[in-house]
């Protein structure tokens, strides 16, 4: 559809476009200052605890720790949303730009629409297909926020705000963050080495996401079940790990591996155009622009006098 805004003149040639692409590989839409990084790190720490607590709280002698262990899932259900709220509030401090908010919203909407097409409640692979190129092109902070918001948005659309949601949100945030952490291959921007790297990351992210969500589900699902597969608060980490491995093999591996493969194939086939589209949009949106002082210029003999605020010369200025 025809744009609201005037179309700037198209770039002169394809060669210019390509170098502009690679130059943009380093630009980020949400700058991560030290405090945002700190916030994301701490939130991720809580997130790691929220998923990995079964392997942590092994203790000899039961008693108080056992009582706490059975409470842990519920405690994290309350804490993790709060932590997410805090970290989003901190990231939102750098989000005041309308362009970033609009791009976040639109990409999250696309991801949510993709999910209603191809995903189930626990799966999120179609979302990754959009999330990873966005994290790569637009930076770590944007990737994290986009992951969190896409899952939240799709839950709102389907009406399924369930207890799994905060955990899915932070896991998807990690996927987006990780995509932004991949090494910058400036020379290969848009070409097959970058796509291959993204594809491999996609497969890995899919597997890890599935395993992590299964890990969240494990203590809930196995309380009261037979030992050997159930979470045992009195056992040590190694035993619990073997129990979890049994549970994972029984329930989730059969779904996760094909999904990871599908992820990798999807990114390999369509990741290039998606990445190019997002980069082009970011360039057009000119993130991080602001007025810079231009060269002063004398007015061409204006007989009605100078500007209202008494300036001698009319200064042009430039936004880059």
């Amino acid at each position: 559809m025809t744009s609201l805004l005037p179309r700037p003149a198209p770039p002169r040639s394809q060669a210019v476009q390509r170098t502009a692409d690679s130059a943009d590989a380093g630009r980020t839409a949400i700058r991560l200052r030290w405090r945002s990084t700190a916030a994301v790190t701490l939130a991720s720490l809580v997130g790691v605890l929220a998923f990995g607590w079964p392997f942590l709280s092994g203790v000899r002698g039961g008693g108080e720790a056992v009582a706490h262990a059975s409470d842990a899932p519920w405690v994290f259900l309350l804490i993790l949303p709060l932590v997410l709220v805090v970290v989003l509030a901190e990231l939102a401090d750098g989000l005041l730009d309308a362009k970033t908010v609009a791009m976040l919203g639109v990409l999250a909407g696309c991801g949510a629409a993709l999910r209603t097409f191809g995903g189930d409640v626990t799966g999120a692979s179609p979302v990754f297909f959009l999330l990873m190129p966005a994290g790569r092109a637009l930076g770590r902070g944007f990737g994290f926020t986009l992951g969190v918001l896409t899952l939240f948005g799709s839950a709102l659309i389907t009406g399924g705000v369930g207890p799994w949601l905060p955990f899915q949100m932070i896991a998807a945030g990690w996927v987006g963050f990780g995509a932004g952490c991949l090494p910058r291959l400036r020379r290969f921007a848009g070409r097959w080495p970058e796509i291959a790297m993204l594809s491999a990351y996609g497969a890995l992210a899919g597997l890890v996401y599935g395993a992590v969500m299964d890990l969240w589900f494990w203590p809930f699902q196995t309380t009261g079940l037979a030992p050997g597969i159930a979470y045992d608060p009195a056992a040590d980490a190694a035993t619990n790990l073997s129990h979890f491995a049994a549970f994972y093999l029984a329930t989730s591996l059969g779904f996760d591996v094909p999904r990871a493969v599908a992820n990798a194939v999807l990114v390999a086939v369509a990741g290039g155009p998606v990445l190019a589209a997002i980069r082009r949009a970011a360039r057009r949106a000119a993130f991080g622009s602001g007025p810079a002082r231009g060269i002063p210029r004398t007015p061409t003999g204006d007989p009605t006098g100078s500007a209202a605020d008494g300036e001698e010369r009319v200064r042009p200025w430039t936004c880059r």
Binding site: L95, G109, A113
Partner: peptide
């Protein structure tokens, strides 16, 4: 108020997703 921008982004996503479909 601290989450306003995030809320706007989510409401944009929720409003636009059916249109993308």
């Amino acid at each position: 108020a601290a989450l306003y921008e995030v809320g706007v982004a989510v409401s944009i996503a929720v409003a636009l997703a059916p249109q993308f479909a």
